[in-house]
Simulated scan of single mutants.
Amino acid sequence: MDDIVKQALAKWPNVPSCTGWLMLDRRGNWRMRDEAAQASGSPGMPIRHEALLGFINRNYECDERGQWFFQNGPQRVYVELGYTPWVVRLLVEADGTLALKDHAGNDFEPAAVFADDEGGILFADTAAPPRVAVLHDHDLELFADHAALADDAMNGEFRWKDGVTLPLQPVRRADIASRFGFVQSPSANA
């Protein structure tokens, strides 16, 4: 968390939280959701300002109930999740090895890989507790190039790097939030 945010929290500790105004979509884009977007169920307008994106990413955390939020100075802004709290991109490094980067640009070291019943690929990392991230849909072909999939496309294995192979585990999309302990649509008062 940024020092300026910590200072604001100390100066104004009782600023009410808000919900519904910020979304992390299925592709890792931060989106502002005004009242009209919230009322219509629209994902809202993508945020493109690089400094603001960096500020959001540095101050993105989870509360004790599994609700993700952006600490905007003294105000906690709870985040609507398009799927998981993290979105990763799969890429090939200059040396030919694979890498995963989360939507904030940080390395993501997978410990497990899952295929959901809607065709999504998810990774759980080595953190404790593990973070779960959905793979950006633009990277599904690259994933398939490094996977051996069964006919059901929910089983098989993923050839990671340094000779590490991760078994592909089937999972229902509806079970992901409870399995990994996060809330997709948070409530500041829950």
Rank of each mutant, 00 (worst) to 15 (best):
M1R: 03
D3G: 03
K6L: 15
K6G: 06
A8Y: 12
A8T: 06
L9A: 15
L9Y: 03
W12R: 12
P13M: 14
N14I: 04
P16C: 01
C18M: 10
T19Q: 14
G20F: 04
W21G: 09
W21C: 05
R27Q: 13
G28P: 03
G28I: 04
G28S: 06
R31Q: 15
M32L: 12
R33G: 02
R33P: 03
D34S: 02
A37M: 07
A39D: 11
A39K: 03
P43S: 11
P43F: 12
R48F: 05
H49K: 07
E50I: 10
L52K: 00
F55H: 14
R58M: 04
E61N: 06
R65T: 12
W68K: 01
G73T: 02
G73C: 11
P74C: 02
P74S: 15
Q75Y: 05
V77F: 02
Y78A: 12
V79T: 10
V79G: 03
G82L: 14
Y83P: 00
T84G: 02
W86G: 09
V87Q: 08
L90Y: 11
L91Y: 08
E93T: 13
A94P: 06
G96R: 15
T97D: 13
T97F: 13
T97S: 14
L98N: 12
L100C: 14
L100T: 10
G105I: 15
G105P: 08
F108N: 10
P110F: 11
A111C: 08
A112I: 07
F114S: 11
A115G: 08
D117N: 02
D117F: 00
G119Y: 07
G120A: 15
I121K: 02
A124P: 10
A124H: 02
A124Q: 02
T126P: 03
A127G: 11
P129S: 15
P130D: 02
R131M: 05
V134H: 00
H136N: 15
D139V: 05
L140E: 09
E141K: 01
F143W: 13
D145C: 06
D145S: 05
H146Y: 00
A147G: 01
A147C: 06
A147Y: 04
L149R: 00
D152F: 07
D152Q: 09
A153G: 00
A153Y: 04
N155C: 10
G156C: 06
G156L: 13
E157F: 05
F158E: 10
W160C: 03
K161F: 09
V164Q: 11
A174H: 07
S178F: 09
S178W: 04
F182R: 07
V183A: 01
S185M: 05
S185A: 12
S187G: 12
